[in-house]
Computed example of a mutant assay.
Amino acid sequence: MSTSQSTSAEVRPFPNPKSAPEAREPLPEIPAAEPVVEVPHAPTTEKAPAQPRKGSTRRFILPVIGIAALAAAGWFGYKYWTVGRFMVSTDDAYVQADMAFISPKITGYVEDVKFDNNQRVKAGQPLIVIDNGDYRIALDQTQAKIDSQDKTLERIKAQIVAAQASVQQAEAQKVATQAAANNAARTQKRAEQLVSSHVASQSTLDDARTAVEQANANLVGADAQIAAAKANIGVLQAQYNEAESSLASLKLAQDKAARDLSFTVIKAPFDGVMGNRSVQKGDLVNPGQKLANLVPTRHLYIVANYKETQLPGIAAGAKVHVRVDAMDGEGFDGI
Rank of each mutant, 00 (worst) to 15 (best):
E111D: 15
A69H: 04
E38Q: 14
K47L: 14
N293K: 04
Q96R: 07
A68H: 01
L291I: 04
D260Q: 10
A227E: 06
H41R: 14
G74L: 13
N218C: 09
L236V: 12
S203P: 04
K174T: 15
E330D: 06
R53A: 07
P126M: 10
Q96A: 12
I61N: 00
P312V: 03
E192F: 11
T177W: 03
Q239R: 13
P31L: 06
A228W: 06
K105I: 02
A228M: 13
I30Q: 04
L62W: 12
A97P: 00
G133I: 08
P26N: 11
K290A: 10
R186P: 01
A292M: 02
A138N: 05
A20D: 00
R155N: 12
A50V: 15
D131K: 08
L291E: 01
L250C: 09
P269L: 07
G77P: 05
S197R: 00
V175Y: 11
V88I: 02
G84M: 08
A184Y: 07
K251C: 15
A33R: 15
A229T: 02
V64E: 08
V161E: 15
D112N: 13
Q143C: 02
G313D: 08
M327R: 01
V121F: 04
A72S: 12
V285A: 15
E330T: 09
T57C: 00
E308K: 05
A185H: 09
L62D: 07
D98Y: 09
D131I: 11
A9H: 04
K114M: 15
E46A: 14
I266G: 00
A144T: 07
S196K: 09
T204A: 10
A229V: 05
K122R: 10
Q125P: 10
I302A: 06
M87W: 12
T177Y: 07
S19R: 01
T152N: 13
V37A: 12
S4V: 08
M1E: 09
T177P: 01
G331S: 03
Q237M: 10
M274Y: 04
A316T: 12
K319D: 07
A217K: 12
E38Y: 15
V37W: 12
Q225W: 03
V303W: 00
S2M: 09
R59A: 15
G66C: 07
P31D: 14
P17R: 15
R209V: 11
V212G: 01
